[in-house]
Design a protein around this nucleic acid. Structure first.
Lengths: 143, 143
DNA sequence: AAAATATGATACGTATACTTACCATATTGA
DNA sequence: TCAATATGGTAAGTATACGTATCATATTTT
């Protein structure tokens, strides 16, 4: 048998495990939060707080998701009462998005938890290594 | 408004985008492959080639997934005729897994493509940076 | 050996993620 | 202005991913 590269050393595999760890930490810490949100839902609320009135396509592009996925995410946020959707009268294809009062409160309460949990994702690295890792990750994704 | 940390700089967000890039590259390169596989499906075949006869729980633990997900993945691989499942007579709860002849061929054909695409995931980094990134990623996931 | 516990697999439910196709509405160009 | 094209949103289909519950079978404990 020709010896194949070790799966566990491949970038794709390592990155997947890293992402797995990241979402596991997020979910775990969110359990004790006043409002339970997934990481995508948090990202959506965060962007809407900064840029109220954008539509779904713009939201999707800002957090790097496709339209279909964001449509589902927004639907769930609307159901939870955190986001309001409204037909844009200037372009009747688009739906304007906005945080509700409840959405603002939820975001304010959850934001510190999310900020705090970030370090935990890379807890196996020293401070210097974390900084190094993040710089490389930013470059790798083209930021 | 209290200024929140920038979402785009958070480890969780960067890691997700990295993973997104990784799966996008995988899917793209796989389109021209003789057999179309997802990255999980490839990982499963790779492990089964190395350790034929293991059961689903062991497979799941080796590639760091939960049993439920691997059950679905294996079901699809079986449907494609790449993996054979058999009740383990020593422990009738378990299903022994094995590559079929077709599975062996598929893996052999796809392996070089997968190996080649790995570098592309980190194409924005220099060779030295790639090595550095991988070392940090390995440490971060605890490998 | 019977009871308690553990483990492999599956079923079900929820939430991503992305592709393709389609409809409605805008914009562009001939 | 009318046809061609582009764009926002949704629907449907596929494939992860994981938690929880349940069933079948093993193992351990009493």
């Amino acid at each position: 048998m020709t010896s194949r590269d070790d799966l566990g050393q491949m970038p794709g595999h390592l990155i997947r495990k890293l992402n797995q760890r990241s979402t596991a930490v997020f979910t775990e810490r969110m359990k004790s939060a006043p409002v339970e949100l997934t990481s995508v839902q948090y990202a959506a609320l965060d962007v809407l707080a900064r840029e109220p009135g954008i539509d779904q396509a713009r939201l999707a592009s800002l957090i790097a998701y496709d339209r279909a996925t964001i449509g589902e995410v927004v639907k769930r946020l609307e159901k939870k009462g955190l986001v309001a959707r409204q037909v844009n009268e200037e372009d009747r294809r688009a739906r304007t998005l906005r945080l509700t009062g409840e959405g603002e409160v939820a975001l304010a309460r959850v934001a510190p938890i999310v900020a705090a949990l970030q370090a935990e994702i890379l807890a196996n690295l020293t401070q210097a290594e974390q900084a190094q890792f993040l710089a490389l990750a930013r470059k790798a994704v083209g930021a």
